[in-house]
């Protein structure tokens, strides 16, 4: 029987995949996608916990987080675009005017 604990394990795995993606990838858009994956891992955790506890709170929180992720995508892609216009690159390694 698949229970909330399995979903928590899956969400933890997704979270680590996302974090590893942020740490290792060089393409800024892929880094950004990894961050979104981490947010969705948290979403999955909220839903799994809500299911386990039998409450609605965690499921409502997911709607907030989804809205937030959408807003973050809008801001983030605009920021990446502004950068691309001036530099013609989305490689994190080439962003070196300021010492990282």
């Amino acid at each position: 029987m698949v229970g909330p604990a399995h979903f928590m394990a899956l969400s933890a795995a997704l979270f680590f995949i996302g974090a590893a993606g942020v740490a290792t990838r060089r393409n800024i858009v892929v880094i950004f996608m990894s961050v979104e994956l981490m947010l969705n891992a948290a979403n999955l955790a909220f839903v799994a916990v809500a299911r386990g506890l039998g409450t609605m709170e965690g499921q409502v929180i997911v709607f907030f987080v989804m809205t937030l992720a959408a807003a973050e995508a809008a801001v983030g892609l605009a920021v990446i675009l502004a950068m691309f216009r001036n530099r013609q690159t989305v490689d994190a390694g080439e962003i070196s005017l300021l010492k990282w």
Partner: peptide
């Protein structure tokens, strides 16, 4: 541009950590 991008990427990264922490505390 660079400042904004760095702040955004690392800020969003940190937010994900915080959100997951909240999920664990909620559990």
């Amino acid at each position: 541009n660079e400042a904004s991008l760095k702040y955004f990427l690392l800020g969003a990264f940190a937010s994900a950590f915080m959100l997951y922490g909240i999920a664990l505390l909620y559990s």
